[in-house]
Amino acid sequence: MNRRVILIFLFVSLLLVTRSFAYFLVTYVVRSGDSIHTISRELGVSMSTIIDFNDLSDPNNIKAGDRLKLPQPDGLIYEVQSGDTIDGIAKLFFAPVKELLSANNLSSSSLINPGQRVFIPMSLINMYQYVPQSTPYRWPVYGVISSSYGWRTHPVNGGASFHSGLDIAAPQGTPIFAASKGVVIAAGVNGGYGNAVDIQHDNGYVTRYGHMSKICVYVGQRVDAGSLIGRVGSTGVSTGPHVHFEVKDPKMNTLDPLSMLPTRDLMYVIRREDDGIAAGGK
Score class of each variant (00 low, 15 high):
residue 238 S to I: 13
residue 208 R to V: 02
residue 56 L to M: 02
residue 140 P to V: 05
residue 19 R to P: 05
residue 164 S to D: 10
residue 253 N to K: 04
residue 9 F to R: 14
residue 200 Q to P: 01
residue 193 Y to I: 02
residue 255 L to E: 14
residue 80 V to W: 06
residue 252 M to V: 01
residue 219 V to L: 01
residue 224 D to Y: 15
residue 43 L to K: 04
residue 30 V to A: 10
residue 126 N to Q: 13
residue 225 A to P: 09
residue 5 V to H: 11
residue 39 I to L: 14
residue 172 Q to E: 11
residue 236 G to H: 05
residue 238 S to N: 08
residue 165 G to M: 11
residue 19 R to D: 10
residue 234 S to D: 07
residue 141 V to F: 00
residue 224 D to L: 14
residue 16 L to A: 02
residue 133 Q to H: 09
residue 99 E to Y: 03
residue 87 D to S: 12
residue 84 D to E: 03
residue 240 G to V: 05
residue 9 F to T: 12
residue 250 P to E: 14
residue 172 Q to L: 12
residue 83 G to C: 03
residue 89 I to K: 14
residue 181 K to R: 14
residue 33 G to F: 09
residue 235 T to M: 06
residue 167 D to A: 04
residue 243 V to N: 07
residue 42 E to K: 15
residue 200 Q to T: 10
residue 32 S to F: 04
residue 66 D to K: 13
residue 147 S to L: 10
residue 267 M to N: 02
residue 151 W to Q: 12
residue 87 D to W: 15
residue 163 H to P: 06
residue 250 P to L: 13
residue 240 G to Q: 08
residue 236 G to R: 04
residue 116 Q to T: 08
residue 169 A to R: 03
residue 117 R to N: 06
residue 254 T to I: 08
residue 78 Y to T: 00
residue 9 F to Q: 09
residue 17 V to D: 00
residue 208 R to T: 08
residue 198 D to Q: 10
residue 278 A to Q: 15
residue 152 R to Q: 14
residue 136 P to F: 06
residue 262 P to Y: 02
residue 251 K to R: 15
residue 254 T to K: 02
residue 269 V to I: 13
residue 8 I to F: 14
residue 41 R to I: 12
residue 204 G to W: 07
residue 180 S to T: 03
residue 4 R to P: 04
residue 221 Q to D: 06
residue 247 V to K: 05
residue 78 Y to Q: 00
residue 49 T to S: 13
residue 282 K to Y: 06
residue 239 T to M: 15
residue 157 N to E: 04
residue 181 K to S: 08
residue 220 G to Q: 08
residue 253 N to P: 00
residue 272 R to Q: 11
residue 87 D to V: 09
residue 49 T to M: 01
residue 2 N to W: 00
residue 235 T to A: 11
residue 50 I to C: 00
residue 229 I to W: 00
residue 135 T to V: 11
residue 90 A to I: 02
residue 193 Y to L: 05
residue 35 S to T: 14
residue 231 R to W: 03
residue 175 P to E: 07
residue 200 Q to W: 03
residue 57 S to I: 15
residue 9 F to L: 13
residue 127 M to E: 13
residue 257 P to K: 14
residue 186 A to M: 08
residue 148 S to M: 02
residue 129 Q to G: 13
residue 131 V to D: 12
residue 259 S to R: 06
residue 115 G to S: 04
residue 59 P to F: 04
residue 263 T to R: 10
residue 114 P to R: 01
residue 227 S to W: 09
residue 146 S to Y: 01
residue 26 V to T: 15
residue 123 S to V: 01
residue 68 L to W: 06
residue 228 L to I: 14
residue 277 I to V: 11
residue 108 S to Q: 09
residue 191 G to Q: 00
residue 32 S to R: 13
residue 171 P to N: 10
residue 129 Q to I: 11
residue 87 D to Y: 10
residue 154 H to Q: 02
residue 90 A to H: 00
residue 174 T to Q: 08
residue 157 N to T: 10
residue 271 R to P: 05
residue 264 R to Q: 13
residue 235 T to V: 09
residue 16 L to Y: 12
residue 69 K to P: 00
residue 199 I to G: 03
residue 201 H to M: 07
